[in-house]
Amino acid sequence: MSIKIFNFPLCIAIIVLIFGMLFKVMHWPFASILMLIGGISIGSLYVIRFISKKNKFYYFLIYRKRVIEHVDCN
């Protein structure tokens, strides 16, 4: 799954969160709901994005192990 798929929904979630903050500062109604929706959506989208990027994390661990082995051999 491509990571670029999550860019647009993340932008929308950040916009909703910012509008919730604006509503909270201005003491307008529905501020808490907007902030809750924005925060939950950002959190869930970043978790899904992190899980889909796990291959890069494993490659990093393998690379780090090879570097440590190379340093130990010298």
Rank of each mutant, 00 (worst) to 15 (best):
R64M: 10
H27K: 11
S2R: 11
N55H: 14
A31Q: 08
C11E: 04
L36D: 10
L36I: 08
H27R: 09
F50I: 08
I33R: 14
P9V: 06
G39I: 00
F19W: 05
W28D: 07
I3P: 03
N74Q: 12
K53D: 15
M35A: 05
M26H: 13
R49N: 07
M35F: 08
I33L: 15
S2Y: 06
F57I: 15
K4M: 10
R64C: 10
F30R: 09
V71M: 12
F30C: 11
I12P: 01
S44Y: 11
S52G: 09
S44E: 09
M35L: 14
K65A: 10
E69V: 05
L17Y: 00
F6S: 03
L17E: 00
I68G: 02
V16Q: 01
F57R: 12
I51N: 13
K56S: 14
I14C: 01
G43C: 05
A13G: 02
L17F: 03
I3W: 04
Y58T: 14
R49I: 02
I48R: 05
K56F: 10
D72F: 10
Y58G: 10
F23S: 08
A31H: 08
K4Q: 09
L17K: 01
R66K: 15
G38V: 00
L61V: 10
K24N: 14
F23T: 08
L34W: 04
L45D: 03
C11N: 06
W28K: 13
F19T: 03
D72W: 10
R66T: 07
I3K: 02
P29T: 03
C73P: 05
F60P: 08
P9G: 07
R49H: 07
V16I: 13
N74R: 13
P9S: 09
F8M: 11
V67P: 02
G20I: 02
F6E: 04
M1P: 07
G39Y: 01
F19H: 03
L10W: 04
I40V: 12
I5R: 14
I68M: 07
I51Y: 12
Y46D: 07
S52N: 15
I18P: 01
V25Y: 14
K65C: 05
V71L: 14
K53V: 08
I12S: 01
L17G: 01
I68W: 04
Y46G: 04
K65H: 07
K24G: 05
F50K: 09
N74G: 11
L61S: 11
D72P: 04
Y59E: 13
F60H: 12
I12F: 01
V47D: 05
G38I: 02
K65V: 05
D72I: 11
I51M: 15
V16G: 02
F50A: 10
I42W: 02
C11A: 08
F19N: 04
I40L: 12
F60M: 14
S41K: 04
I14N: 00
F60V: 12
F50R: 09
F30L: 15
N55S: 15
E69Y: 09
K53F: 13
I33W: 14
G43S: 07
G38H: 02
P9D: 06
N7K: 12
G38Y: 00
L10S: 04
G38W: 00
V67G: 03
V16L: 07
